[in-house]
Amino acid sequence: MARNLDPKCRQCRREGEKLFLKAEKCFTDKCAIERRAYAPGQHGQKSGQRLSGYGQQLREKQKIRRIYGVLERQFRKTYFEADRRKGATGENLLQLLEGRLDTVAFRMGFGGSRAEARQVVRHNGVLINGKRVNIPSYTLRPGDVVQLTDATRAHLRTKAALAAAAGRGFPEWIEVDAAAGKGIFKAFPQRAELSSTINESLVVELYSR
């Protein structure tokens, strides 16, 4: 299975903002963005560099890919599915990414990061409507019940991730019982409920070239 093995803090610095790829570290002053808020590499501290229109579109696509942990081929496939559906393509794209099992597992606190939540899914630690599903890209439907297996819920790391997520609060589009390690995917999120730092229209422009 292909994976992005680039250092996670380096990815955040390249995009110039927190992508929350390192679990609890991202919420402390140890975060790389807090210490070195410039791009990595020999020329990272040079200021005044301007991107072309294409460059801005490409950077936005890379940022979204890194946030959701999706490789290029899978991201492109998701985009074309979003374009095929009715409604705004950009919003459809974000909804499809948010509807992935690994993303929902992360939102519910089953892992401290998306990568950790994806590992829980891959290791058969998640049930959907009582059935075991180990495909991170599985798209949920509104009303689906997602829960941890008893063995996975007993892990100390999983308990810590659930407690941390409960402390920060859960999104409106999911309902979570942290004590039971169980939640309901109520609906696909509306655009206003998602991050305002994402400019999905740039991605639409990029693929419309």
Rank of each mutant, 00 (worst) to 15 (best):
G16L: 05
E17N: 05
E17V: 15
K18N: 09
F20C: 03
F20N: 07
L21T: 13
L21I: 03
L21E: 10
L21C: 02
K22W: 11
K22M: 07
A23F: 04
E24W: 08
E24S: 04
K25D: 12
K25I: 14
K25C: 10
C26N: 02
C26V: 07
F27Q: 05
T28G: 10
D29Q: 10
K30H: 15
K30T: 14
K30C: 12
K30N: 11
K30Y: 11
C31D: 08
A32G: 14
A32Q: 04
I33C: 00
I33Q: 00
E34C: 15
E34A: 11
E34L: 03
R35D: 05
R36A: 03
R36S: 12
R36V: 15
Y38G: 06
Y38T: 11
A39Y: 01
A39W: 00
A39L: 01
A39F: 01
G41K: 05
Q42C: 00
Q42R: 11
Q42D: 09
H43M: 12
H43D: 03
K46A: 11
S47A: 04
S47L: 08
S47F: 04
S47M: 07
G48V: 12
Q49L: 15
Q49R: 13
Q49P: 00
R50Y: 07
R50E: 09
L51P: 02
G53L: 01
Y54T: 08
G55S: 12
L58M: 05
E60C: 04
E60Y: 06
K61L: 08
Q62W: 14
Q62R: 09
K63G: 10
K63I: 02
K63S: 14
I64S: 02
R65N: 09
R65Q: 15
R65Y: 06
R66H: 05
Y68C: 04
G69F: 09
G69P: 02
G69W: 02
V70F: 03
V70E: 02
V70Q: 09
V70A: 03
L71G: 13
L71T: 10
L71P: 08
Q74W: 00
Q74K: 03
F75Q: 01
F75M: 05
F75G: 03
F75A: 08
R76F: 04
R76L: 08
K77S: 06
K77F: 14
Y79G: 04
Y79R: 01
F80N: 09
A82G: 06
A82Q: 07
D83M: 03
D83N: 15
D83T: 10
R85C: 05
K86E: 15
K86A: 14
G87D: 06
G87V: 15
A88K: 11
G90A: 04
G90W: 00
E91D: 12
L93Y: 08
L93R: 01
L94W: 05
L94P: 07
L94Q: 01
Q95W: 02
Q95F: 09
L96V: 13
L96A: 06
L96N: 12
L97G: 13
E98C: 07
G99M: 01
G99V: 15
